[in-house]
């Protein structure tokens, strides 16, 4: 059996970056990465051998994140989905500094946030990002456009604005 270490290890810094951007909490982000690595090691033989290891790792991390978030939401009070995504810290800021895009990102739904991170920061191809997020490949560009539109609006107005969808 080939040792998966050299194939997994180079991606740990990027996994930490993605987890941190999602959670914005050092320890919880590293917990998420640790769980991702444990799962990757235990399922190494189950992955598609010709598949891209980096995309596979990011998909594991993202799935763990989403299932936890759903579970937390089930256990907590029920809230509107647009309300649920932002962190407390982000909501407390009355006006966002233009340069703090990371904080503004917290106000987007998880899927838009992940898409902007995977494409814009992690440099995944549009197809790979779609696969990681489990969305139809044909919808990536329009979703990306909507995510950027929303982020622009946040930074321009300094607060959350619900936009009409403009085609």
């Amino acid at each position: 059996m080939a040792d998966p270490g050299p194939l997994i290890e180079p991606h740990i810094p990027a996994l930490r970056r993605y987890a941190f951007a999602l959670l914005r909490d050092r320890d919880r982000a590293d917990d998420l990465v640790q769980d991702t690595l444990e799962r990757a090691l235990s399922r190494w033989l189950l992955r598609r051998p010709d598949g891209d290891v980096r995309a596979w790792l990011f998909a594991i991390l993202r799935n763990l994140h989403v299932s936890r978030w759903r579970r937390d939401r089930r256990h907590g009070a029920s809230v509107d989905i647009d309300e649920a995504a932002p962190s407390v810290a982000a909501r407390q800021e009355a006006a966002l500094e233009v340069h703090d895009v990371l904080a503004a990102l917290d106000q987007l739904p998880e899927e838009q946030k992940s898409l902007l991170l995977l494409v814009g920061v992690e440099d995944f191809s549009y197809d790979d990002a779609a696969r990681i997020l489990g969305m139809p490949i044909g919808t990536v560009m329009s979703r990306l456009s909507r995510a950027r539109q929303r982020l622009r609006a946040l930074v321009e107005t300094g607060k959350v604005t619900l936009l009409r969808r403009v085609k």
Binding site: E9, I12, P13, A14, R16, L37, L116, G120, R152
Partner: peptide, 26 residues
């Protein structure tokens, strides 16, 4: 905004990986 986001996360990427995330330890 794309560049700003990358810039904000650069430091995280450059951090040394903490021991608990070393594959040998896991």
């Amino acid at each position: 905004q794309r560049n700003a986001l990358r810039g904000q996360l650069e430091g995280k990427f450059a951090e040394p990986v903490p021991p608990r995330l070393w594959l040998a330890n896991i």
